[in-house]
């Protein structure tokens, strides 16, 4: 198996924005516990901006590192900007992921999109 980059391992060991926002404006959950990776993202939104974001993840090194990375990438960003970030962009920001992990453990931007969807639904 390919090795993880230093950045991935460091972020796995010291993840940022880990936790759950109380009374969030949006919640997104993706993944499947049988496959091993489940991500839950909670967001706070003000004036179309993601003012706070936290994650909780059950998963491997890659899943936890990508979760942390997406929260760092989108915090403070406008929603439409944040939605433009793909799973691939997250992996790129981490200096790459082992090929086998690209599909199954790289779900962070999907989780974010779900959280935004939830926010928009609640807004209506």
């Amino acid at each position: 198996m390919d090795e993880y980059t230093k950045k991935v391992v460091n972020l796995f060991k010291n993840p940022k924005n880990m936790g759950e926002i109380e009374n969030p404006d949006g919640v997104g959950v993706v993944g499947n516990p049988v496959c091993g990776d489940v991500m839950k993202i909670t967001i706070k939104v003000k004036d179309d901006k993601i003012t706070d974001i936290k994650f909780k993840t059950m998963g491997c090194v890659a899943a936890i590192a990508t979760s942390s990375m997406i929260t760092q990438m989108v915090k403070g960003k406008k929603i439409n900007e944040a939605l433009r970030i793909s799973n691939k962009d997250v992996a790129k920001e981490l200096g790459g992921l082992p090929k086998i992990k690209m599909h199954c453990s790289n779900l962070a931007s999907d989780a974010l999109k779900e959280a935004v969807k939830d926010y928009e639904k609640k807004k209506k």
């Binding site: 796995f12 998963g59 090194v61 890659a62």
Partner: peptide, 22 residues
């Protein structure tokens, strides 16, 4: 997840194995 446990144990110098999918 087993791989995450393994990696954090490894950081502390402890070698184990896992049969988990990841």
């Amino acid at each position: 997840e087993g791989e995450s446990i393994l990696e954090l144990l490894n950081e502390k110098g402890i070698a184990v194995s896992t049969g988990s999918a990841c």
